[in-house]
């Protein structure tokens, strides 16, 4: 029981944070706001899933936010019906979506080519990729905002069932369930833990380390593209700075959710709690009548507190396990 509580500390923190916010601002207690939190969390959540695949394998993917920005912009550019700012091609949305996912996969392949074949540090590779993709976005768009997206393209991000429940929320929650299943019940998932835990042992035991790592990066890239599609539809427009700076929240959610940055340790469900916690903090702060001057500070402090709290529960778990007071 103690162990269960400690392992799921992020959910308990989420519960108490929510209660605290609602106590201060009762208007937060509404279905609408609840759904806003989920909707806000969906983009971050999709990126976090990709990051966790890489983190479990003992690698980083810093490029997923720019994969998001790049594929969103290029996709919107290809599909836009605007006579001035689009490509003018007005490609069919279904084709564009396939192309976007393909580009995401391509970025993942490139990342893993440099990391696996050329053995460049993952941090450097994906950081360079982040910068390169940001640069390339100019090529396609002249730094313009892309808009006039066809409704069918925008549906995934923009449509809500009954005008209330966005399909992006259903998508993101199902992705978490599916990916948790992948981690727990497929050889791919289990192999990631082995690779992140001890790459040499995994290799010696016959795990195809390179192939698994490649798959993790490709998944991360494709999830970046999927998030791009959702976000483009939601905003009905794409700017060149889309997704910029999200990598910080992606890491924060993963760490709060108990994923080890050293690899081999973590689940999907913990970070889901982390994602929702960040969502509650962001949404809560935007509804609460708190002075604008304080928003950034409060946000930063709350995130820091969550990370520290995670570490504290880890220490407690260790103590509990070893019986040391």
């Amino acid at each position: 029981m103690t162990r269960f509580l400690l392992r799921n500390a992020v959910w308990i923190v989420l519960l108490f944070t929510t209660i605290a916010f609602v106590a201060v601002e009762p208007r937060l207690l509404s279905v609408r706001i609840f759904i806003n939190v989920l909707e806000h969390s969906s983009i971050l959540g999709i990126l976090v899933i990709g990051m966790i695949f890489c983190l479990l394998a003992g690698r980083f993917d810093l490029s997923s936010e720019s994969t998001l920005g790049f594929t969103a912009l290029v996709g919107a550019w290809m599909v836009s019906t605007n006579p001035f700012f689009g490509s003018g091609w007005q490609l069919p949305p279904a084709l564009v979506i396939v192309l976007m996912l393909g580009m995401g996969a391509g970025v993942g392949c490139l990342n893993s080519f440099f990391i696996i074949k050329l053995r460049v540090n993952a941090f450097i590779v994906t950081l360079a990729m982040l910068l390169a993709l940001r640069g390339f976005t100019y090529v396609f768009t002249n730094a313009n905002t892309m808009y006039d997206l066809p409704p069918s393209f925008a549906a995934l991000g923009g449509y809500s069932i009954g005008g209330l429940l966005p399909i992006s929320v259903i998508l993101f929650l199902s992705l978490f369930v599916v990916s948790q299943f992948v981690l727990s019940y497929t050889t791919f998932g289990r192999d990631l833990y082995a690779i992140g835990g001890n790459r040499e042992a995994a290799f010696a035991a016959g795990i195809r380390v390179d192939r698994r790592t490649l798959t993790a990066f490709v998944l991360s890239g494709m999830l970046g593209a999927l998030a791009a599609w959702v976000l483009a539809g939601r905003l009905q427009a794409v700017t060149i700075n889309l997704g910029q700076g999200m990598v910080f929240e992606v890491f924060a959610a993963a760490v709060i959710g108990g994923v080890s940055l050293a690899g081999g340790k973590g689940t999907m469900m913990g970070p889901l709690g982390g994602v929702l916690l960040l969502g509650v903090i962001t949404t809560g702060l935007s509804v609460m009548p708190i002075s604008s001057f304080w928003v950034d500070a409060v946000r930063g402090v709350l995130i820091l507190a969550a990370v520290v709290l995670w570490r504290v529960t880890e220490i407690f778990e260790e103590r509990w396990r070893t019986g040391t007071p």
Binding site: R190, A194, G197, N198, A201, A202, A204, A205
Partner: peptide, 17 residues
């Protein structure tokens, strides 16, 4: 280069297979 510390005994026994 034998074992993965983070994993349980059974999974190490069946590691890679």
């Amino acid at each position: 280069m034998a074992l993965v510390d983070e994993l349980e005994v059974w999974e190490n026994v069946f590691l890679g297979r």
